[in-house]
Amino acid sequence: MSAFRQNVIQPIIDLWSLIVGLKVTGKCFSQKLITVHYPRETIEDEDLDTYGGHVELVGKPKDPATPKCISCMMCVTNCPSRCLKVVKAKAPKLTAEQQEALAEAKARGEKVKKPRAPKTPQKFIYDYSLCSLCATCIENCPVHSLRFSHTMYWATTSREELKLDLLARLRRQARRKPRPAAKES
């Protein structure tokens, strides 16, 4: 009897689960869509703000076109993917007159200050195709000059375009949104 129950009655009862399944999908069919039609709609900014896109430079608060970066190379040494390339700026070359003046001053026994190399880097190249977005550079920057951008919708057609000149990018950003100080005046 139990065999009959197990082999004949039970399967018929089990068919109910199929109806339940249809009910679930039927219910979902009548519900609102939950996807975002990408080109026409985008997701909310609030979710986008936390997205870690490629790395970008942070400008000085007073001069957004110049990065805070002091060319200390911490980011370059710590990067596991070796995707950053920073070229330090060289000390400005002295003109002949300046050199003479310097030599004179030295001869007079004054304390001579040779012009130092500016701390701002000359080049800041970043290869997004290599980057693993691990944030090691961001954490290890002593002056907090790096951060994640929020560019989620960026696509390129060639690998070369993934090499970014972050300095140029920063200048573009600064131009696009005028600094708050300028607004006030």
């Binding site: 999908t25 979902c28 069919f29 519900q31 609102k32 869509l33 939950i34 996807t35 039609h37």
Partner: peptide, 13 residues
């Protein structure tokens, strides 16, 4: 379309 709506997406659009 039907499959899309069951899965709560628009299907071909």
């Amino acid at each position: 379309k039907f499959a899309g709506h069951i899965q709560r997406r628009p299907g071909p659009f």
